[in-house]
Design a binder for these strands. Structure first.
Lengths: 415, 415
DNA sequence: CGCACTTTATACAGCCCCTTTCCAAACCCC
DNA sequence: GGGGTTTGGAAAGGGGCTGTATAAAGTGCG
């Protein structure tokens, strides 16, 4: 809330590193042009990052006749970041170098009966251990672990206040994880993780106002407003999935009716399909992934039912996205998460058409709707980005005071 | 977008003046406690405001045994601010002293046939002239005129890009007004005006995240996010009225179906009434104000139809407000504009109940829903506040560069 | 009445930020 | 090898906020 000049510095530091990661190698001149900062400021920030070993000088580039430009690039071996995506049925963990390239990956299945916090924490610890050994990284080089858990999260205390899938209530997740993981930990939810991923590395890069729509089993929106993530007063902004789209419509697991999620979430799409063709061969009982994949194949094969289902889904989704466009007036709306990826371009085109029908002309004219360009799991990437932000936060501060609490047990080696 | 340390200063200046206006007279000590700034900073800011003659020293207050606290208060005669509320059927103009007390008021009727920009500009000029003479203020003391016009507005160029009521397109409203009004002019739309009014003087004071819901003929939301007004990328954020609440529902003037406005705007409420009791005596043909007032009286008199209409309206409105709560996670939702005022407490209670049913528990717990406490026209007040902000913006800057363009023709006296 | 004590307000130094300006370093070309 | 050009860093300058010292203005008590 309280703005200080230090926030400016932090934001600029983010901006510069973001730019370097995006365009590596690059020169100080380019950075200054891209960020709008003065050369002097860029130089000091680059100096800081060099001191941190997050970037390195990698040679020179010819200039127009004068002294050559020094080039800096991400120091990929300068450290590792780990992103953890805890979802209803799985735990994905990815280990990244500082260029945010995936060095190792691990996945654990969360079986329906094993959803107690201890089980999940066990999976996370195992997978984190696995990626570290896979990548052959020394523990000391891991700068942090970002953890995404669905639902409402208090990132200050590290408590999962409420996770809808498993009916968790006020689980001190970060404390539990700290007992098994010795790296600095950062907790947030997948909505914000994927938003940050798009902001740093995806379609929202350089945009001040963006909405990242997450289409998975659950549905939600990550909000980038005024250049930063909007969290709301209790860090639960973006719960778009439980916004009413059809008053008195389909019943939702949240207890309400007509929520967006019941029309465009994975289960909602299955309902759309069932309504159109109750006995469809595309339906795979309760297996969401299989059904959505079958649907995608059906569209590719010009199956009329599949096409109609996507069209119908896009009708709902388009109306919902148009609402977001009208409300937020963003520069860009990014469709992310596995359902969006599976249905891909056909969904996108249908959605764009529906958005054009529903949104007001002025905000519509300022907005583009795109698919997430991030090739890997955006939530893992975003979670790792939280860790990166955390590592950047404390730079240059005299006393190591952190605004974001970080749990770590640095006395013992990683589990 | 680009943050500079000057923004911090400006924000602090706003904060201090806001506090003085709210609690006048007050001491530097109180200001420091209220704003969280150091005494030194408060002292310099107070010094600036004293130099500007916006506040004055008004005596002393006993301290606990030591030197008495100097008290400062708004210098009500230090200048005047004018707020202009242009709406579909009227032009309201109010002149305020620096304590934002109304000194004079004028109203012009905009008849259906007279909606050309020249007509409206004429009304504005006449009303502005009227309040200045009424108040007996010398022209030089008018610090600025804020103008609110419905629809999409480009505040940088002063162009009314689109006004739905009159089908205006790209009307250079500020240029037209400049020809008749010699004071600095500031243009924006009523959504943002009422939001700023709540932020400075109303229910959103001191809140970092608030949503101001405007219920009038048109419907929209002013968004206060992260301590400031959210404008979106083309200054058209907050168009909540044309958000879909019932897919394929009632037709809306925007061309879509099921927009929030068609259920909770004045016309929508009339439809709600008509659906319940087509021949109701409460219906006053096309007169929105009369019908809404009749409805309010009906509720007060325990008329069952009136009560059911309000209940039904609150059902829609509650669902819509719950959507805003889920999306933005605000501290407070303020119901503003004339329909909200007319229907008052009965509507509020019904809405609260409906919001409680629809919103997710976590964001709901952090949010309160209230009626606007502003006794006068919030749009006029907000528009005047834009002028006040404008007057504060340039303080202390070496060269009078303004970030917000201001049109004024100071060579000639006011019309 | 005068002195000690308290509280308030201001002045000043210190630190953080960003930018402009100046200058050394590094390279090209002639 | 010298002039011209570009780069990068160091220093100075302008803003901002804060903590500390100091002046100002009271109270209380001997």
């Amino acid at each position: 809330m309280k703005r200080t000049s230090r926030d400016i510095r932090t934001a600029n530091r983010y901006e510069v590193l973001r730019q370097i990661i995006a365009e590596s190698p690059t020169s100080r001149q380019e950075l200054a042009a891209a960020t709008g900062l003065s050369l002097a400021t860029v130089a000091t920030l680059v100096g800081e990052l060099l001191d941190l070993r997050m970037i390195t000088e990698v040679g020179f580039e010819d200039s127009a006749g004068g002294r050559p430009r020094g080039l800096v690039a991400v120091n990929t071996s300068g450290g590792a970041l780990i992103g953890v995506d805890i979802a209803e049925t799985y735990v994905h963990v990815e280990l990244f170098d500082l260029g945010l390239n995936v060095l190792a990956r691990a996945e654990e299945e969360v079986r329906p009966g094993e959803s107690l916090p201890e089980h999940v924490v066990g999976h996370v610890a195992a997978a984190v251990g696995s990626v570290v050994t896979q990548a052959g990284i020394e523990g000391a080089r891991v700068l942090g672990v970002g953890v995404s858990v669905p639902g409402q999260v208090d990132r200050a205390t590290g408590i999962s206040e409420y996770a809808p899938n498993w009916d968790w209530h006020d689980v001190p997740l970060l404390d539990l994880l700290t007992e098994h993981i010795a790296y600095p930990l950062y907790l947030d939810n997948p909505l914000r993780a994927s938003a940050v991923a798009e902001l740093w590395f995806g379609a929202a890069r350089g945009r001040g106002n963006a909405v990242v729509v997450n289409l998975g089993t659950g549905v939600g929106a990550g909000l980038v407003l005024g250049g930063g993530l909007h969290r709301g007063v209790s860090n639960s902004a973006g719960e778009w999935g439980h916004t009413t789209m059809v008053l008195d419509g389909r019943p939702c697991r949240c207890g309400n009716h007509g929520c967006v999620e019941t029309y465009v979430g994975a289960r909602g799409i299955m309902l759309n399909l069932r309504e159109l063709d109750p006995g469809s061969a595309l339906l795979h009982a309760e297996d969401q992934t299989a059904t959505i994949d079958a649907l995608a194949r059906g569209v590719a094969a010009d199956d009329p039912v599949a096409r109609r289902v996507v069209h119908e889904t896009a009708r709902y989704l388009g109306a919902g996205v148009a609402d977001l466009v009208n409300l937020f007036n963003p520069e860009i709306v990014v469709l992310s998460s596995w359902v969006a990826r599976a249905l891909g371009e056909p969904l996108l085109h249908a959605v764009r058409e529906a958005v054009t029908r529903h949104a007001l002309p002025r905000p519509l004219a300022a907005t583009q709707v795109v698919l997430s360009p991030i090739p890997t799991d955006p939530v893992c990437l975003g979670a790792a980005t939280f860790a990166l932000e955390g590592a950047l936060q404390t730079v240059g501060q005299k006393n190591g005071k952190r605004t974001t609490p970080v749990r770590s047990r640095t006395t013992t080696p990683p589990s």
